[in-house]
Computed example of a mutant assay.
Amino acid sequence: MIELDGQAGGGQLLRTALALSLCTGEAFAMTGIRARRERPGLLRQHLTAVDAARAVGKATVEGASTGSTELRFTPEGIHAGEHRWTIGTAGSTTLVLQTVLPALWMHGVAAHLTIEGGTHNPQAPTADFIDEAFLPLMERMGIDGDFSMGGHGFYPAGGGRITFDLRPSAKPSALHLPHRGEVVERHARAILSAIPLGIGQRELEVARRRLGLGEAEVSVRQVKSPIGPGNALSIRFRAEHSTAVFTGFGIKRVTAEHVAEGVSKAASAWLAADVAVDEHLADQLLLPMALAGEGSFSTTLPSAHARSNAALIEKFLPVEFSFDDEGGGRWSIAVSR
């Protein structure tokens, strides 16, 4: 059984451990889960990920309770087919998906996954990010499936839904992204759930001015039958070899202009760095590239989160990560056996 210390990160370390345990069949015990957070231990959204992994891996689990800082997980196999999980809050549906999808992919099985909860959560990849930035790269690595969003779920109401139909797929293959190539598409979209239209229009005006977007490169999406109020500004740059999605969220007592300035600044920084992968997508690529046994990409300064995640992956798989500073704000991350 692999012994892990969860103090170095948040829920992502636990989700990575669950995903790799399912992929390898290796049991693990983690202590200090989210120990340095204001609310340490497992929360409802983490427990949904544990329950999902338990169902997919036919696993025996100890310590899966609210507030627990210790967990033992022993997988016994892979249960494909149809699964449905409800978080019950605005906890991230996409993070639950990323917990179980790698193992189902690795084992070459078919599955239909439905997850209800938050689709647009400030602390997690949005459904748009998964659909537009992450999954296209996974398809290049070999996954075969269809992703859809059946409803938006914003904090705190949740109520959104995502589905993924996985077809039997080839095991992950190596992917190398040294350059992004030319930017071929730009778009900014304001998403409004029970929020006045003017909020989105003000956000888009800032994005147009800061990023030089044309009138046809912006749009508003008003959520039909909203569960609760919510607002996000999503800016997408699609290049020849990769896509970057940057998202900002409307917050009480924060102006629409301030939200848009923050997202536009992040997008501008990625453009100026001339790298293939932004900081958040970099975090998401480590695990699938490690499963392939080989991969690399250019990115901006790696987060501490990425480094701790890489260290955990190395405990499960016979791979090694390298983080190389190429100067001028450009970094290269690579994984090899």
Rank of each mutant, 00 (worst) to 15 (best):
T69V: 15
R72K: 05
R161H: 07
K171Y: 04
P102L: 01
G77A: 14
F147D: 03
L113V: 10
T94D: 06
L135S: 13
P125N: 08
R84V: 09
V100T: 00
T69N: 12
D165E: 15
L166C: 08
Y155L: 00
G159I: 00
M141K: 02
G159N: 02
P168W: 03
A110W: 00
D146R: 12
P156N: 05
T126M: 15
F164A: 11
G181V: 04
G158K: 04
G108I: 05
T86Y: 06
E139Y: 10
D131Q: 13
L177M: 07
R140N: 09
P178L: 10
T74P: 10
G158S: 02
D146C: 14
L101K: 00
A157M: 14
E139A: 13
G151C: 09
G118K: 01
G77V: 08
P168V: 00
G77I: 10
H107D: 07
T89K: 08
P168K: 02
D131E: 11
R84A: 12
F134L: 15
R167H: 02
R167N: 08
R161M: 15
G91I: 14
I130W: 07
P172K: 01
I143E: 02
M106N: 14
E82L: 13
L101T: 03
I115D: 13
F164P: 13
A127G: 12
E139D: 13
I143Y: 01
M141I: 03
P136Q: 11
I162F: 08
G181L: 12
A80L: 12
I143R: 01
A111W: 06
G88C: 05
T74D: 10
T89Q: 15
E132L: 15
I87L: 12
T94L: 10
P122A: 07
L137E: 07
G150S: 15
E139W: 07
H120T: 05
R140W: 09
R140P: 02
P168C: 08
F134Y: 14
T163N: 09
F154C: 01
T74L: 12
G181E: 12
G150N: 13
T86M: 04
P75F: 05
H179P: 09
F164G: 03
L166M: 09
G88A: 05
A103Q: 07
A103L: 10
G77D: 15
H112P: 02
L177Y: 13
L97M: 12
H179M: 08
G88H: 06
G117W: 01
Q123P: 00
A174P: 11
T119P: 06
G77K: 06
F154E: 01
L104H: 02
R72W: 13
D144P: 04
A110V: 01
G108P: 09
L71Q: 00
Y155G: 03
W105L: 08
T114P: 05
M138K: 06
T119I: 07
I162C: 11
L166F: 13
H176C: 00
T94V: 08
P168I: 01
R140T: 01
T114N: 01
W85A: 01
Q123C: 10
